[in-house]
Amino acid sequence: MLRNMVDEIAAWFARSFPPQKGLTLWLILMGLIVAYVVIFFGLQLLKPRARKSLIAVVTFLAGLFYALEFFLPTELIDGKETNALTRFLVPMSEFAQIVAVLALGLGIYSLTMIHGKTLLRFRTGWFYSLTFFTFMILMATFGIMVEEPFSREAQINRDIRSILFVGGLQALEGTMFSIIAFYIVSAAYRAFRVRNAEASLLMAAAFIVMLGQVYAGQFLTNWLPTEGALSNLRIETMSDWLLTRINAPAVRAVGFGLGVGLLATALRIWLSLERGSYFDREV
């Protein structure tokens, strides 16, 4: 029955809003943008209590779709498990992608405000703000520019983009990640001390796992056989045992707690049981 009802609603929407092209499509898009702006400012005019109630209703409905789609019983249609709501997964995924892209505008706005103020008032670090604007504009220009394959301009565009992307962004990100290696060494050197029995045990386990990861460590016990009882004393076997028999169950146990905690928090947010807008005042 639910399936029929959903199908009828979907069919009504399809009849009422057929796909548009050309000028009509652009007019509809413009109209939607105007409607979006009106709704946005209209929401600002609402009283906080009414706004929070509206947020609660929208939150509940948005969550309800995925909850129902997951829990409603399914039947096999064309070899795929399907229920009344499954057909809307693709449109919902597209909707989510569009909403995610809108965040880009917010990000650019925030960065422009912060760096714009610094730059205009020549505050300390204005040079970094200038660098930011320069590279944002360069990256956006050469990233968005349409490429006509095989033309000279397209080749120049590709070359500049390659300099910015490979020579700039990739190298900088790689550098930041490699810095972690230095921090890991200094943090390990500072933190590992044989203060008590537990710390000593932890350190012994760390040594075995570290040695088990590299050939220099494996070389130490290479003289032991690869089969039979003595093979258990090989460093890579001990390391594997620690990772799969000690580490994995511990991670799994922590995972159960985290999973239930996540479920509880999600439930509270979905049903707006949290207090206030994060999370102090009663709604």
Partner: peptide
């Protein structure tokens, strides 16, 4: 291998 051995040595030294 060398980086791992270095970490172990530093921990021992510490």
């Amino acid at each position: 291998s060398v980086s791992h051995i270095l970490i172990i040595l530093l921990i021992v030294v510490g």
